[in-house]
Simulated scan of single mutants.
Amino acid sequence: MAEEQTLRSEQVFDGRLLKVYRDEVALPDGRHSVREWIDHPGASAVVPLFPDGTTVLVRQFRYPPRRFFLEVPAGKLDRPGEDPETVARRELEEETGWQARTLIHLASLYPCIGYSNELIHFYLARDLEPGRQQLAEGEWLEVVRMPLEEAFAKARRGEIADMKSTAALLLAEAFLQKNDKAVG
């Protein structure tokens, strides 16, 4: 198996969040092709777990698909090299008003390898205590508390249409089934 080699790279868009590139590459057979891709700083996503077996998700409007989504708390890394666990803690508190004394890393996955280098770090949050919700300017969301088992079922049935949230919930469910006798 051979890798594609970058021959030339042109940045075609420089946004606040995303940078878009058009690269010319040499294919393993010697031919050339073009790859358009998005440079993304990465993100962290958190499944909070309360002792009573509930969780909190957030419902918010997402402009590109123009609809509301039920999601796990999550957010992007603000600078290169930022610690994903620090981001997970920050986003959990900013979005939900809860802090986690314990974060368990579940996995780090690339959600869209065909056109982006984004890497999302997934965590299970335990030992939660009240913090202070501080939504970013222009951020509007509703915090939704529900039984964690209900969130797992929604993810399995495809009722949670956000891929990072479905992945986070299924990773948390697998972790808890393997490591805990009872959720909570």
Rank of each mutant, 00 (worst) to 15 (best):
Q60E: 15
R67F: 04
E139A: 10
A172W: 02
S33D: 15
Q134V: 08
L128Q: 05
R22H: 06
G114K: 05
S165M: 05
V34A: 04
Q133I: 07
W140N: 08
D29W: 10
R62W: 13
A43H: 02
K178R: 15
N117E: 03
I38E: 04
R101E: 14
V25T: 06
D29M: 06
R145S: 12
V47P: 06
L57N: 08
L18D: 14
D180P: 00
M146V: 00
D29H: 05
S9M: 07
S9I: 01
P84L: 10
A125Y: 08
K19P: 05
K76D: 14
T86G: 06
G53T: 04
S33W: 09
R31P: 11
V144T: 01
P41E: 01
V72K: 01
R101I: 00
A168Q: 06
A43P: 02
R126W: 02
L7H: 10
S108D: 14
G131V: 01
L70K: 06
I120K: 01
A161S: 12
P48H: 09
A167R: 08
R66T: 10
G30C: 10
R62M: 12
E85T: 09
Y115R: 11
H40R: 07
T86F: 12
V143W: 01
L109A: 12
V56I: 09
V46N: 08
E24I: 07
S9V: 09
V46P: 05
F152P: 07
A100K: 06
R126I: 02
E159Q: 14
R62L: 15
T55E: 00
E36T: 15
Q60H: 14
E91V: 12
R156A: 13
P28I: 13
E137P: 00
R59N: 08
A45K: 02
F122P: 00
G131F: 01
V20Q: 04
L18Y: 14
I113T: 07
R79F: 15
